[in-house]
Design a protein around this nucleic acid. Sequence first.
DNA 1: TTGAAAAAGAAAAACGGTTTTCTGTTTTTC
DNA 2: GAAAAACAGAAAACCGTTTTTCTTTTTCAA
Lengths: 328, 328
Amino acid sequence: MITIKDVAREAEVSVSTVSKIINNTKRFSTAVELRVKSAVEKLEFKPNPHARSVSTGKTHALGVVILDIANPYYAAVVKGISHEADAKNHTVLLADAEERPNRERDLIETLAARVDGLVLAGSRLSDTDIRALALQKPIVTIGRFPGGQVMSVVSNEYEIAFQLTRHLITTGRKQIAFLAGPAFWVNSERQRGYLDALLEAGLPSMIYQLPSPNIEGGESLAGTLLMGANRPDGILAYNDLAAMGLMKVARDLSVRIPEDVAVAGIGDIPFAALVSPPLTTATVPSLEIGKIAARLLMQRLEGLTILEPSLVLRAKLCIRASTRIEEK
Amino acid sequence: MITIKDVAREAEVSVSTVSKIINNTKRFSTAVELRVKSAVEKLEFKPNPHARSVSTGKTHALGVVILDIANPYYAAVVKGISHEADAKNHTVLLADAEERPNRERDLIETLAARVDGLVLAGSRLSDTDIRALALQKPIVTIGRFPGGQVMSVVSNEYEIAFQLTRHLITTGRKQIAFLAGPAFWVNSERQRGYLDALLEAGLPSMIYQLPSPNIEGGESLAGTLLMGANRPDGILAYNDLAAMGLMKVARDLSVRIPEDVAVAGIGDIPFAALVSPPLTTATVPSLEIGKIAARLLMQRLEGLTILEPSLVLRAKLCIRASTRIEEK
DNA sequence: TTGAAAAAGAAAAACGGTTTTCTGTTTTTC
DNA sequence: GAAAAACAGAAAACCGTTTTTCTTTTTCAA
């Protein structure tokens, strides 16, 4: 390993001089500056980030804990975060919680020690836990609203669920089910939106709990739901994955979509447009959400006072064929 | 921040004693041991990993550079790596190269400084570059075969492409196109398999270059391919994403699958079973590939001589409706 | 009982950086 | 033309660990 000492020797200056020139924290004569820079070039010196961190207490890295890397929704969020972090010369370190709270806790702990701040992209921890973490290290959550020191970026969950449900009602559905995700903020809001839309129309509600908010979850619920006594004629799923899992089983069972059952998801992952029929959903600005989260975090790291520590970005309806019935 | 010094003070022992007890690198009297351990408990002391790394030169972390986090294929690979790393108490740090070689280079550089070894899950760098990197730090590639010091895990690409193509031929296809991915080992092998199968059957080959090996790539190629003068009646795509992108456009253009064109992908990502018709593909043991890659890397880190630095795992055909024609 | 070996634990050096302090030279300034 | 200020650069202290070295005590065999 080639260290700052080697550079100092090569350039015939002191170690401190090299350090200051590298970080240009002080100006030197052009002669010295040149010697140092060419020595750095020649030896291909890369400052050891660990040593740097020990010394400065900063890492210039952001940690991102993803709820589930297999959920394409988070892929876009991550790209948003990365782009913003790149722009400010921060490194992004990712970790996949695999929907397991204990694993998430471990990851946060190990990651926290290695970065300046954390983004929790879909957490399974309690609000209290997250608030406690935020006392140690700047944290921004995505899709959660823990309050306290925690900064948050979310979208208008209530509204889109309300609108999607209303859309289902508009197409003439009378028995609309909601496939609920894990009991956290996002789900509550979506569920509220769903319920309020039904209330408004005077329709009954049917809520089913997804065992997991993904393809398998949708699949596992589909059997009872589609073949049960009172099959719904409309379904709003917690997310696109669950909706798509359900649609697969529907196809296997020859339940027609949207004729027999209309299905809507939330998220608008790239695959939502690929299935047949294409999935009605809500387009969540995931890239933008990631960007804002990163921006918020880095502002906090720079010591700026965050004016709006909680931002709500707007998702929009995206009506596709899975709910559309041809005009009769 | 609470440091080892605080613990030493609290336990009324020297710093070195604390260090040695924590890493149990030396035995102490039970009295001292107890004092130190309860001090650690009480103060919730977590050793600073950076300081540790500076001192030991080890990080106990593996870096994983993913070609594209939006490609679900890699999600499974990452899970495989994580599980194996967990089992040996290693931290996994992920980074998303976004299919951009320059970005990949940067990521590798920053990550290399923070970890003990690297997994490149689908690289865009040249074999030479990768070999050069492997001289600095242990590297295992997935889906590449750079040789030199580089360890590799791949699957039987040639064979599955051959079999898929032969399958298309068996279903009566005469004009079979290959949508080629980036010009690296994986693609060459798949292409070879494709070509050899055609050769065997005495059929002509049609190779189209995907602008990018993902949904958009498949979509952008679909227009000319499906509406052009000599439309193929069978298509083997470099991967599932490209196949699915193409299928979407086909549906929009009312080209029937598999009646007009049979389509096959490679990878068997979870979504391949969800589209309509379900996609014929090759099931690549992605989880297992990740596990083996991690195992290989960690063995090398432990100084073990790697007996087989290059492993080939077997993928299997997965025939679904996108190529199947009902018996007439 | 002695005296060498072993044990227990503290002190100090090291890891690779950054930052503060210090020491000579040049420049200013009047 | 002398004192003060500014400048250039080196030296030393420090960050939080581990590891080596050193000192003091204890143990145990002869």
